[in-house]
């Protein structure tokens, strides 16, 4: 079975990486939001208009196919509300397998987890590992349920 996970970094590598901002953001931000289905590929107009990106466009279109047949989902983090309590780090089952100590209450210290508290606020560092995305597509909401301050929203 082909790997259906979509990593923003994979997407970024195939984007023009010129930061022209015709889509209103940098290429990295566009890649992250593309993985979240918050933007559509066609909003990156140079990809479609410039011949040099033809192959990259084809690869990108293939890469985001699994996303297109996924139910609408995503995780949004309100950093202004977050207190860095780390509840989400500890409850996340993916974090527990990526860095087992987190399940026992320790702070996430590697780059392998979904959540990691940096500078006092939680960051989603590997969104593509979240079980809500392909291939698992599970209706997991433990991070949202464990948040004290409603900083995590799942849809």
């Amino acid at each position: 079975m082909a790997d259906k996970k979509v990593n923003p970094m994979q997407l970024y590598k195939l984007l023009p990486q010129t930061n022209c901002k015709k889509c209103g953001m940098t290429c990295m931000a566009f890649a992250t939001r593309l993985a979240l289905r918050e933007v559509e590929l066609k909003e990156c107009t140079p990809l479609f208009e410039e011949e040099q990106y033809k192959d990259q466009l084809t690869q990108l279109q293939n890469l985001i196919l699994p996303l297109l047949d996924t139910e609408e989902t995503g995780i949004k983090l309100d950093e202004t509300k977050c207190t860095g309590c780390g509840n989400c780090v500890v409850v996340c089952p993916v974090d527990a397998s990526a860095e087992p100590d987190t399940a026992f209450g320790k702070a996430a210290r590697t780059t392998e987890t979904v959540f990691r508290v940096e500078d006092g606020i939680v960051k989603i560092i590997n969104l593509e590992k979240c079980r809500r995305f392909p291939p698992e597509r599970m209706n997991c909401r433990v991070c949202e349920q464990g948040c004290y301050v409603n900083a995590i929203k799942i849809w």
Binding site: T83, G84, G86, A107, E118, G120
Partner: peptide, 13 residues
């Protein structure tokens, strides 16, 4: 500037 891992907001500040 301070960069931290694992510190909560209170601890970071």
């Amino acid at each position: 500037t301070l960069q931290s891992l694992g510190l909560c907001k209170l601890g970071h500040e």
